[in-house]
Design a protein around this nucleic acid. Sequence first.
RNA 1: CGGGGCGUAGCGCAGCCUGGUAGCGCGCCUGCUUUGGGAGCAGGAUGUCGAGUGUUCAAAUCACUCCGCCCCGACCA
Length: 578
Amino acid sequence: MRYSEMFLPTGREVPSDAEIISHQLMIRAGLIRKLTSGIYSYLPLGYRVIRKVEQIIREEMNRAGAQEVFLPMVQPAELWQESGRWEYYGKELLRLRDRHDREYCLGPTHEEVITDLVRNDIKTYRQLPRNLYQIQTKFRDEVRPRFGVMRCREFGMKDAYSFDADEAGAEVSYEKMFAAYTSIFERCGLKFRPVEADSGSIGGKYSHEFMVMAESGEDAMIVCEKCNYAANLEKAEIARPEKKETGEKDKLPLESVHTPNVRTIEEVSAFLKVTPRDIVKTLIFNADGKPCAILIRGDQEVNEIKVKNYLGINELTLAEDDMILHATGAPRGFAGAVKIKTRIIADYSVMNMVNFVTGANKEDYHLKNVNIGRDFNVESFADLRVIEKSDTCPRCGGGIQFVRGIEVGHVFKLGTKYSKALKAVYLDRDGQEKIMIMGCYGIGVGRTVAACIEQNNDENGIIWPMPLAPYQVIITPVNVNEGQVLQAAEKIYKDLLFRGVEVILDDRDERAGVKFKDADLIGIPLRITVGQKNLAGGNVELKERKSGKTTIHPLQNIVSAIEKSIAGSINPVAGKQT
RNA sequence: CGGGGCGUAGCGCAGCCUGGUAGCGCGCCUGCUUUGGGAGCAGGAUGUCGAGUGUUCAAAUCACUCCGCCCCGACCA
């Protein structure tokens, strides 16, 4: 493409509403423009990158045996009512009505549609397993879109769904997708890692998120320094400690202390001259409408997702004042496990505590020397807290590190959540009706592009890895008014086009500096500079965007040098297509 | 949904407090010079000042209402 004919508006100024580097660069390099909050247009350069990612996804999905479909974006309410998510999904689901006043939603994901499709046309185990995928625009009415295409409302996503006859088959499907995702992100040239994650509102048993490592990432995770355990902070497990028996004689007599207006952990520890580690924090939660007490050591934090999963409930919030009053008999700030009128679940952190401090369930009083077993009993001990720097790997006991990342892919084992609700059943070998086992697998396409920029940029702009680069080469004639220079550049341009290289010829009548700056900003991996000086010796200059290294090549060798460089930096599809 | 901020030329911003001719830089157009890292000089175009209502002789400026956008929080594949 000739630069002079391209729609490629680049900018020098950093847009005022772009916070993170990828957002700034995507606007400055003319990849995207915002239409309205959380909704973006992709310009030609940006769309080329999107298509590169999509193509890699297609190749790897096909190779894994998945088949591409294209599903509707507008979906009838009935289907969502059938799965129960019309009620459950909340405001993120954009609902609309047609001229007949019938209700629809814009698809934020496609479990319902795909399950409906499959249940109508798959009847026997002979037709299983199947894995169908699509690359579609999704709409989620995010509360707060931000970071450009990283968290937006309308976004491109690849979603795949697997249907299996049994658990063992579902496991195989999951493993295949896990492997395909690994190939996809490797081919994109990203530094990433799969981490164990909570499965969120999509539901299902367990899942892995594919995280692109980036400081600006919205997700926090921990990685083990020794083994390959890595997990989202929400999910990161904490090993059960060993139970130490305390002799009855070590338990000091229970004592009630007047603590006027002393409520928070900080206030209590200061008032009683103890550390937060000596206090057991009693949090009253509203668990699907019923109160539940969660005990945890005073210096630690409850992981609400763990609590939610442990209790197997839908909604968990900290209890309102009147629920606390009702459950404890005291206002907020004085809750304790002794004689409380709720279930009591304790985090492992309190399992071995002795002679600790708690609220007294009485206004302005706390208890000292409280002991489990003697003063109260807990229903069970469980892993309910947020992992901390001082914790160790739950698998191998090694040290852990806290890192941040961008979630670009997520693979779920859905089980029968949707197939059961929507009655996606088949007949097995024995003529028995069985429910299909599902899996679902997503990749954020736009987000992958943004994540790539987060990992590959410098003060001059984007540095595309070759597999995602919108163009592989840019030819920069230093001065288009010098006939020989332009002619030489045109010749190289035609030769490269002929060889199938994706190339831009910067034929604009601009000063060299402007062209260099633009070439760097839009991040084309290879730049051929054609200038009077080198040309006099029959040479041109090749500059690598990533390393900044320049090499001089005779005119007749430049095309082969380029082809060699490109071949060396594209990860081809391994193995044959199916 | 709660808190805060912003809306003035394509982009980045000043002007508003203290009402009276709408400005600056970049970009854009024309000409001349320049030509290996965002050139110089000269000339030029571009605005419902987010919208509406009110106060006033007079509103970008003051008041009220609405809309949009951004940030923090809550929420969230």
